[in-house]
Amino acid sequence: MALISLTPVLLAGFLCLYAMLCGIDVYACLLDGARKGLSLAQELLPALILLFAAIYSFRASGFTDYLAALSAPLLRRLGVPPETSLLMLLRPLSGSAAMAISTELMQRYGADSLIGRTAAVMIGSSETTFYVLAVYGAAAGIRRTRWIIPAALCADLVCFLSSAWICRLLWT
């Protein structure tokens, strides 16, 4: 666990050393990357502001509590924290919405709580399924998707269940 916390330092050290030995201008390359990160954040900012606004009001309206209460019996039996129900519902539809919800969950219950960790693992091990489907469908000219959507949603379902189970196994 101590070593895994050192990941970024180890990675940075070895990558810089290797790149230097290859004769690459390390600093210029790092700056390029950081600049890309900055423009990514800039792209993300308006979307995040709007989605946070929508999701906060959604939470305050009492719907998420209702949704959690409604799905709690089933989710508890499956070993999934009911608080993550909205996250699981919206994860395949919007990446920024999922980020907003999981941040809210981490702030409310703590980043190191079981709910906070489960939320992090859930979004870390899944993708914005419908966005990917739309991009690839349009690019490859897929007219009839047939079994692609059910199979992709199966992967999401397994991802959510296994995230919840692994987290419960490791951190309770």
Binding site: P8, L48, A53, A54
Partner: peptide, 25 residues
């Protein structure tokens, strides 16, 4: 929510830039 969205995006920007820099390398 709007305020927190701004705060949140700023709070992850540093880490995001660091990772992007490593990925570029």
């Amino acid at each position: 929510g709007a305020q927190d969205g701004l705060r949140f995006c700023l709070s992850i920007t540093g880490a995001l830039c660091f990772w992007c820099a490593l990925m570029e390398l």
